[in-house]
Design a protein around this nucleic acid. Sequence first.
DNA 1: CGAGGGTTTGAAGTGCATCAAATAGTGTGG
DNA 2: CCACACTATTTGATGCACTTCAAACCCTCG
Lengths: 247, 247
Amino acid sequence: MPVSAQPAATPAASLVDLLRGSALLASLSPERAALFATAANEKHYRKGKVLYLQDDAAEKLFFIRKGWVKLFRETLDGEEAISDILTSGHTFGETSIFFDGHYSESAQLVEDATLVEFPARLLKEEITTNPVFAQAMLSVMMKHRRRQAMEIEHLTVQNTAQRIGCFLLRLCSDKKGLGSVTLHLPYDKLLLAARLGMQPETFSRALAKLRTETNLSIQGATVVVPDLEKLVQYCCNACSNAYPCES
Amino acid sequence: MPVSAQPAATPAASLVDLLRGSALLASLSPERAALFATAANEKHYRKGKVLYLQDDAAEKLFFIRKGWVKLFRETLDGEEAISDILTSGHTFGETSIFFDGHYSESAQLVEDATLVEFPARLLKEEITTNPVFAQAMLSVMMKHRRRQAMEIEHLTVQNTAQRIGCFLLRLCSDKKGLGSVTLHLPYDKLLLAARLGMQPETFSRALAKLRTETNLSIQGATVVVPDLEKLVQYCCNACSNAYPCES
DNA sequence: CGAGGGTTTGAAGTGCATCAAATAGTGTGG
DNA sequence: CCACACTATTTGATGCACTTCAAACCCTCG
């Protein structure tokens, strides 16, 4: 069944297998997955590449194979608000395709990346004909909604240091070692600051504050959390989610 | 004077007819709509009534027939973050029912209200068996997502006066009279302030600022916008949506 | 080595929150 | 109908958090 008619004869997993790693696309039937794989277009882009702009016709669904992509919106007077930053295994563009056919934000690579692109038509077909897929899509939407709700709350009830700490805690959730944890910032601090809705200078200072308050140590992009409990204490009291809060 | 900004439901209308006014429930087949109507439980509650608390088992879908409901979350140290304020024709609870069976926020009346309650079971059945309904649900979710995204942007790029102005502009969208528009604040200023993520005092001052900047005049809950264009100019330049931005 | 972007630090300004108090508005019982 | 209590709203004074502008410091990479 798994057809490897795709020229993407990467030593790694075949495209069909990769799709299983996506919350959305994993719900495709083997036949449809094969069809998606055939129609797919795998591309490598360089950092800075603009994939589409807000209000463009939504003609593609994107799946990130590797790299980082930022979704953002620009205001009339030139400010930029980041709505999301995504990496391997994530899909984007689906909401716009289904909803009104125009992207509601712009997308740009923040690092070199390999993307798999699917024609919007396929997605639309799938949603209307495959109830299982429609439900997977619903699940994905709802997950997004919860995350957005959390983000709104954070912006109103947490200060900058707490927002950074909360972000770090979400990075910790993989590494289960309660007590001391070492982790790496996934992208540069400038972008991270924008992601958290603050200025780079503010980010720097807030991180310094977090260091003294919770005994963090920071070496460039490497962060050591010696006392997870202390960090949780500092951040999560200002939030309506108890740690671990990931959804 | 208690104001209901929304078109009042005709007291005579049957439940089935009412459901047609809901973006979500309008997609029910006549038979299912009848079934929903039979299983429905219409109740009148007083202002302040708590419908459910965050993390409660999600056993009901609510439809607002009349009145106002706020959805909110509380942090460990007692802050309250309002996630939404809803009125006639809106449904709530659907996300939690489908997603993980627990409400992700608390719900409380901010005014006396008449609600129609449906058992969660019905909704779950409908989603899994009726593709049309699933798609209606998807549409509703996506609309919510766009609104949330806008809200996040507003919190980071707009100041308090602009946020208020933007809220007023959305109230204007009904009344098409370009030029001068009169409108009424849908609920009290304390709640409005919380809804917009600011303190009551800040709200009052920001409103005063908006008055001088855009020639608004305000009498209690009545606001007269003499020059819509000027208000748009003041608010929308800081936003990525051109007026009229409602979705 | 030198250029240029990322990061930190410093000083000053702005916006919003907080605390406190005055004023307006609403519903109550006398 | 008034006095009272109580709640909303406004106003003033002050402080803190974050931004802004400026400059220094680090990297890495040519």
